[in-house]
């Protein structure tokens, strides 16, 4: 009995969780200028508008550049941290790992503001995409570490030793044994970091300077009611892209778990 009520609650909860997102395509294909019910009829004109919008394209390009570079750098740093914490036990490990993971809970405005101050006031440099990348690497690294730690921790340290024992150099052992075993984790963390960076607004808003990223561009659109349907269309595509990327990430993460012969019951975090 109580279990049925619990299930009902969970279903309701999940429905509410997804409800706002479900509205996206509804308004994206709505022929009306105003984002409100009743609907005005089916139209794909808002999507068509996306194809010809040059500002949008350059913002998208900026975001892709930022997301690719940040995710690669964050994952490289994440591999170092995840391997160090899984493989070695050393003094100060907890404190250092804590410092690397702090951006996970730090309010993003603090990250944005503090990097802004360093770039603008201390270094006296112009803002730009490079500053966004620098900050995105900082906030993506903890997520990369979280995903990669699972992969590295489930790796039997004897694996690499066995490879060494069978005649491989340290690099050879890492390349032929460790890397293939954690590869799915690496792909998963790349995709997750890419998604985070692509969506990130709060920090990018402070640091992007004259060349906006996609979320900063969308923020600009939100001020003009006439542009809102475009935001809906764009949002639909973004949500779709996120879901595809994350599904791929989840598939890779699970494949990694299966490959390492580990029982799988966890999520990304």
């Amino acid at each position: 009995m109580s279990r049925r009520w619990l299930l009902l609650y969970v279903v309701l909860y999940m429905a509410l969780l997804y409800a706002p997102i479900a509205l996206l395509p509804i308004f994206a294909f709505n022929d009306g200028q105003v984002i409100a019910f009743p609907l005005q009829g089916f139209s794909t004109r808002w999507f068509e508008g996306l194809w010809t919008n040059r500002t949008l394209h350059s913002a998208l390009w900026n975001s892709l550049v930022v997301a690719v570079i940040s995710s690669v750098l964050a994952v490289v740093l994440g591999i170092c941290a995840a391997r160090a914490s899984a493989r070695y036990a050393f003094r100060g490990q907890g404190a250092v790992m804590g410092m690397i993971m702090v951006p996970l809970v730090l309010p993003e405005i603090i990250v944005g503001v503090s990097v802004l101050i360093v770039v603008n006031t201390v270094l006296g440099l112009p803002l730009g995409l490079w500053a966004v990348i620098a900050a995105h690497v900082l906030i993506c690294t903890p997520f990369a570490v979280a995903v990669l730690s699972g992969a590295f921790q489930s790796l039997d340290p004897a694996m690499e030793e066995a490879a060494r024992d069978l005649g491989e150099t340290p690099w050879g052992a890492f390349r032929t044994v460790t890397l293939p075993l954690v590869a799915p984790g690496i792909v998963a963390s790349l995709l997750i970091c890419f998604t985070i960076s692509l969506d990130e607004f709060i920090i990018a808003f402070f640091l992007t300077g004259a060349s906006p990223t996609l979320p900063v561009y969308i923020w600009g659109l939100l001020r003009f009611p006439a542009d809102l349907p475009i935001v809906m269309a764009l949002g639909t595509l973004l949500v779709l892209a996120s879901i595809v990327l994350l599904t791929m990430a989840e598939i890779f993460r699970r494949r990694g778990a299966a490959r390492a012969g580990r029982k799988d019951s966890g999520g990304f975090l």
Binding site: A158, M159, V177, G261
Partner: peptide, 12 residues
């Protein structure tokens, strides 16, 4: 050469 306690058979 060594036979490890966990065998360390490469799963991939």
């Amino acid at each position: 050469n060594m036979v490890f306690q966990s065998y360390a058979i490469f799963p991939h």
